[in-house]
Design a binder for these strands. Structure first.
Lengths: 251, 251
DNA sequence: CGAAATTTTGATTTTGTTCAATCCATGTGG
DNA sequence: CCACATGGATTGAACAAAATCAAAATTTCG
């Protein structure tokens, strides 16, 4: 409830796809300036979402895609016994809401990990606009494909037999994603809890904790609470290689 | 090289989306009979693919989507050290080739597990047709979303801590998918090797073998080579529940 | 039929999980 | 401002499960 309605309106007016820093990662990338306004018209810029808020919940009605503008969002799915499987941690430039198009209901939940803002794009209106802008249509497919490919990194990580490999792979990928956004790849804050990370990696929290400690003891990273500094980028990507028992034994 | 060119032509002429048994699972589902012909025109029906052939390979140029008409196809991605991660086993009605739209090159390989036939749909021509048929456009999104959601089952499986749970989850899902296609859900042939299955589940081959033996010893399934009979559907889905140590201990 | 490949089974080792205790950062209320 | 409670994270010890190593059995295929 901080900030008046009025203040929010002003900031919304200021925003437009044309001047968005994420433009080239986003749906709008290949569109001419003129046509961009048509897309701009249907995009709703939502007020910032606070930590622990849900962007959407499993089972709720689906009608929009969301592009993350800033922050970090966790997606997960409920399992029969009450617990859940974390499916991803999503960063700026990434798209959410593709689940749910098929069944008109979201198949997963999206929870905000740190204050985030997103652009909401009503799905049917996007379809209407895209029908008249072939370049936009193609870009939508491209983005969807990109997300599809990125999802595959998850099973690749979980397929590794050693906890260290999984964590190294995660940290390495996280670091890479930061690079791609022009952020420091060697020093960052993890916005998810150890519990979330463990769940994501298919491990228990203790094992993740030990893997962090181990990487730190080996001088690969420095970790303080949720802050991570990558000390030896090379060593990290060595550990991220498919399970070679030699590597992770002594050192 | 079996079958003459002529024979193949005849069988191709006979095929059309309109009389395809998979129509309702496929892109064409909600399209009127008249418009269906336009889609029909761009679909290439490929001659049956033999076991071990590749539908496409990682790195090769992408230009089409593929709908599996019959058979079974395995997708996988190469890992830095030379081995690979199996990402999925795909059955009739499912779509392949969405990887590769973003980068114009396939990001994964698709290998035929048993004689299969697929419809090939040139991607840009599909776009052209869909631009004029909103119902087709929507259906494409729906199918893509469906595949997207189905991919999530993989990390859910890999997230389980016990080998038995992963295998049970796989068998249960496989059985369900058969039901959906009107096939016997309780008796089937697995077309993938134990090695492929182990890789897919994030386990080694010996562990998978033992899990099979164990499920058989418990009377849940009967397994002979690659043929599986589900004896106790209920017990199977109990084992497929998130890791409850009690369940899989004795019995 | 015989060779090669795949799968199963057994014994052993390694790793991760579980259980339990401690630590530590944070926030509360006296 | 400082005990104190709280939740999250780390660490340790015992245990269980899967990986590894090795061998035997079975199937597949030439």
């Amino acid at each position: 409830m901080q900030g008046t309605e009025h203040a929010i309106d002003i900031s919304e007016l200021r925003q437009s796809c044309a001047r968005c820093a994420l433009l080239n990662l986003c749906l709008a990338a290949p569109i001419g300036a003129a046509e961009l306004r048509r897309l701009d018209d249907i995009v709703k810029r939502r007020r910032p979402l606070a930590r622990n808020e849900f962007l959407f919940r499993e089972g709720s009605r689906h009608s929009s895609l969301y592009v993350i503008r800033s922050g970090a969002i966790k997606t997960s799915v409920l399992l029969p016994e009450g617990d859940c499987q974390v499916l991803g941690f999503h960063l700026p430039g990434e798209i959410l809401g593709l689940d749910g198009v098929a069944s008109e209901r979201h198949q997963l939940s999206a929870e905000v990990l740190e204050e985030s803002s997103v652009c909401e794009i009503p799905f049917d209106r996007l379809g209407e606009v895209a029908a008249q802008l072939p370049a936009l249509q193609r870009q939508i497919y491209r983005i969807v494909s990109r997300e599809f490919v990125r999802e595959q990194e998850h099973p690749v990580m979980m397929g590794r037999k050693h906890a260290m490999t999984r964590l190294a792979l995660f940290l390495h990928g996280f670091s890479e994603r930061r690079s791609a956004h022009g952020l420091d790849p060697c020093s960052f804050e993890l916005s998810m809890s150890r519990q979330d990370l463990a769940n994501y990696l298919g491990l228990v929290i203790e094992t993740v904790s030990r893997a962090f400690s181990r990487l730190q003891a080996l001088g690969v990273i420095e970790v303080d609470r949720r802050h991570v500094i990558v000390r030896d980028r090379r060593a990290l990507s060595d550990f991220a290689r498919p399970d070679e028992p030699e590597l992770r034994a002594t050192a």
